[in-house]
Write a protein that binds this DNA or RNA. Structure first.
Length: 300
DNA sequence: CCGATTTGACCACC
DNA sequence: GGTGGTCAAATCGG
């Protein structure tokens, strides 16, 4: 049916494909140049090439993931998918490929809550993807926290979330959020299973596709950490939650506001281009406290 | 009032 | 028995 995207999205799609293609070309040029240089003179003075190359890879990775997200979101035309996979170098650049929506929920064993009388079933499958981030990012899906725990592995609390639509739509997506580092703050979000719920995507995240902020969002994938390997939310933009808690967390509202003013700090220090005012994750009160500490730390 | 969060208890797995 | 994942009643907040 509607393989047709709205004009704006179609245009965005085309632009992304274009950008993806150009980034690909640039990478090829860089790689080729590096090879040549390497042969000519090994161990010469420092070059910015590695940095530039890394940058290009990240850009490419972002394009790839964004297109895949777009693709999975809209049942986009095959041509898009083709253009993405065509020369996709992402696999060689630590850019995990997004998993198609269809593969979603193939893990029935993930959470098998009480089947019967008090029978808990622990998940025994590998995470679909992980994401480390210095902030708590919003992925457009709504999550419901169902627990938190201290683990022996970390001095920080681990929070457990499941999709809000677990009950009404049977969505099996769950995620765990845990702070893994204090200074600078680093959070690891681990996703299990995929969203099967319908468009819980927060429209706020995808509006203004051409705005700088939106671009930032789309380009914010983390290269090293697979911002999205299998895109747990086949249709989400980034990992997020309604409240991405961490320690003890909660009160997204205050935290969200803080993050809004917090964005410059984050951009500056951690170089994570993201429009936090739009996607800031909501933290719980406790989390907010932690962020407050960071504010102080940075003179807020 | 209703949905989300908190938190202690329960349970599976190692 | 320890650890980690989940449940569910109590509580919170819009």
């Amino acid at each position: 049916m509607e393989n047709q995207l709205p004009n704006g999205k179609k245009a965005m799609e085309e632009e992304l494909i274009k950008g993806h293609g150009m980034a690909n070309q640039l990478l090829e040029v860089l790689v080729q140049d590096k090879l040549n240089t390497h042969l000519e003179e090994e161990g010469s003075s420092k070059s910015v090439l590695p940095f530039v190359e890394d940058l290009v890879r990240k850009v490419l990775c972002s394009f790839t993931n964004t297109l895949l997200i777009l693709n999975s979101n809209n049942d986009v035309s095959n041509e898009v998918a083709a253009s993405i996979t065509l020369r996709d170098v992402s696999s060689s650049i630590n850019c995990p490929k997004l998993q198609s929506v269809d593969e979603t929920c193939k893990s029935p064993n993930i959470l098998n809550p009480k089947s019967g009388s008090g029978c808990y079933k622990r998940k025994s499958i590998a995470p679909t993807w992980k994401k480390d981030s210095s902030i708590l990012i919003e992925d457009g899906y709504t999550w419901r926290k169902y627990g938190q725990k201290m683990t022996s592995q970390s001095k920080y609390l681990r929070s457990y979330y499941r999709c809000t639509h677990k009950n009404d739509q049977g969505c099996q997506a769950i995620k765990q959020v845990q702070r893994i580092q204090d200074n600078p703050p680093l959070y690891r979000t681990t996703y299990y299973s995929h969203h099967t719920c319908k468009s819980p995507m927060n429209p706020e995240i995808i509006v203004e596709p051409f705005s700088p902020s939106a671009s930032s969002i789309l380009l914010s994938f983390d290269n090293n950490l697979q911002s999205k390997q299998e895109n747990p939310f086949s249709s989400s933009i980034l990992a997020s939650t309604k409240h991405e808690p961490q320690e003890v967390i909660h009160n997204e509202h205050s935290a969200q506001n803080k993050l809004s003013t917090f964005e410059n700090l984050l951009f500056y220090d951690y170089d994570i281009p993201f429009d936090y005012s739009r996607n800031a994750t909501l933290l719980s009160s406790t989390e907010a406290v932690q962020f407050e500490n960071v504010y102080e730390q940075y003179g807020f």
